[in-house]
Amino acid sequence: MNIYVINGPNINLLGTREPEIYGKETLKSISKKCIDQGLKDGHDVKFMQSNYEGEIVEWIQNAITEKVDAIVINAAAYTHTSIAIHDALKSYSGFKIELHISNPHLRETFRHVSYISSAVDAIVAGLGPDGYSHVIELLADLQKHYKQKK
């Protein structure tokens, strides 16, 4: 499978940004684990991060043209604001999972609204940085389940 793992704003600061919420693990370390897990299972994982909303929209559009099998997206703060990312995800017909390191629903009320959740197949949140590799590990099975759904 070809898999895009897309990360939104401030995720490049992982490890130093509010470690009590997001943990001490850096984005580089998470990226390596995802790619390694993918290699183990025969997936090609592209791990990306951007602080720019438009760039994230373009990556999702690329996933459509490149016929990428699955998108795992942690849109970070754009989760709660971006109709543009919602629309782009709606146009993508592969398997898509919204992921968060913490559980936004247990935090400030402005994080309780997600424009992403209604545009994806599934949501995984609050499992810490390990959430990424758990999702990659299960993706082959998940895609089968998704095909049943279609």
């Binding site: 999972i97 949501i123 609050g126």
Partner: peptide, 13 residues
């Protein structure tokens, strides 16, 4: 303010 994980939409998975 509790640490509770959340997984929704993966069927049996």
């Amino acid at each position: 303010k509790c640490e509770v994980g959340f997984v929704s939409g993966l069927g049996i998975h």
